[in-house]
Design a protein around this nucleic acid. Sequence first.
DNA 1: GTTTTAGCCTTAGTTTTTCTAAGGTAAAAT
DNA 2: ATTTTACCTTAGAAAAACTAAGGCTAAAAC
Lengths: 295, 295
Amino acid sequence: MSLAPARPKGPHLNALRAFEAAARLGSFTAAADELAVTPGAVTQHIKSLEAWAEAPLFVRNARGVVLTPLAEELLPGFTSAFDQLGMAVQALRAKAAPRKVKVAALPSIAQLWLPPRLGQLRRAAPEISVSVVAMETPPNLTREPFDLTLFYGADQLGANEMEVARDRIFPVCAPEIAARLTGLADLNKETLLHDGAWAKDWDMWLSAQPDADGIARAGTVHSLFSVALEEARHGGGVLIAHEALVQPLLDNGELVRPFSGSLDLPARLVAKTAPAFARSPIFSVVQDFLLGGAA
Amino acid sequence: MSLAPARPKGPHLNALRAFEAAARLGSFTAAADELAVTPGAVTQHIKSLEAWAEAPLFVRNARGVVLTPLAEELLPGFTSAFDQLGMAVQALRAKAAPRKVKVAALPSIAQLWLPPRLGQLRRAAPEISVSVVAMETPPNLTREPFDLTLFYGADQLGANEMEVARDRIFPVCAPEIAARLTGLADLNKETLLHDGAWAKDWDMWLSAQPDADGIARAGTVHSLFSVALEEARHGGGVLIAHEALVQPLLDNGELVRPFSGSLDLPARLVAKTAPAFARSPIFSVVQDFLLGGAA
DNA sequence: GTTTTAGCCTTAGTTTTTCTAAGGTAAAAT
DNA sequence: ATTTTACCTTAGAAAAACTAAGGCTAAAAC
């Protein structure tokens, strides 16, 4: 009815992205994490979008948010739009810099498992430049700029995923410590090392051993596996280790396995490839040297 | 090869949007116009995206830009992603505020053709609120927040488009001026009024009349048709008018047609509906009262 | 029945992004 | 030769986005 003066603008794109992430994950905090911002930023984006649309999109409860029926209905459209945008961005990255590979991996994998393989790859194909970013949780490959992720996971293998190694745990220690360990009971006299993110490893391994009752399951926690590993190398205790991460040190004798028992966990070390990277000309080279040519 | 410290971020969404618009339109200026910003803003967005991708996307010539093969190849993916995002936003608008209609129209249409019809609609369906935004060029309905556009166009009718009126031009003037006009030659003694955006109207109409040689085709230019119309109503000259815009004033006798000759232009007054609005429950009401129920 | 925890909120203030304004260049058109 | 078109650059201003810190509330844990 009225003659508005200025051309009205659409909502901010960042607000739309925040809405999509928050609605998909059902949590502002989780969305903030995915977008690598603070939750407050997400709150404000959502608020700005709600103001633009003049309609509420979330019902805020003290313990989490719930989508309104409106948001529920609109989510799929936004998700597929941002998925498509993400793929376009991945295509841009893959085609603009086809000799660069970005890998996201668990810190321990980035530090212990990757380096020897990266060396091999560099000797075989020096024109390929690989950058590795360490993080605790796997990035969303349709949204974040990575070509390859390496994380432990127990889920069924999805598209573009392949198993690189099984997740097997067993105790390791320096040879001089192994010399004084004659049975499981001797563990009570040693420091049991483990990684904070894998807090239950000792517990699980001991439960799987016969006659392991009465062994203390506490020990020194390290927030990074590689720090605990360093401690073990220098005779600081017995570490409950993941096979893929300690194999080189077992091979060269710096660490030994004081007990033969090993435990296979349901998880695996899984490599996941971004769709655009799977179509890249350097994909097969990277696959051969980084992932050992496994199918 | 190196362990990067921070999680790398993707490109800015606004930069992607600027790239998509500039690549699709083949011009930074046109993109700036579509996005309602200055060309400098587009320049910087593109530059930031090129820096992120570490690859050029446009070749800048002194007279326009040309897409690089890379940009050419990536464009369709971005266009369809932003189209989908635009549709999701339109759906949000349509469902969050289903009683609100946003119309974009040529200033003259907004001021002269729409008001009586909006009055009718308001009397028939007062719960519907209509807002009208006047602009010179039609907005892109998949990107900008409008439900309906009303512009003159000569192109074939596309999807969601309908013809509201033919574009017919003829001279009009106040009755007292008409009284002293006995033939085309008398036009030489009068001020010929026309709209700046329709500069060739007098020319075209005179060319279509027999025995119109030697009539001066210059006159007073007004940047808005409605200003020229006001001038004509008050006896300020003879206006070359578009039928749809002056019909009410002809009906009530404030203006008359001093000559019988009219010229049908290839253009039409075309109403175009946003896909999401076509599915809205109020669509048929708006269509009936605003567009005269035309199929 | 407290206490803890999780999850979101608000606000103030800062940083980053985005935009505009103004002046400049070069090729094409007149 | 002059004008026009179209993009560029830069400085500075405006707006957006983000962070940090403190607070609230309800479910879960004790």
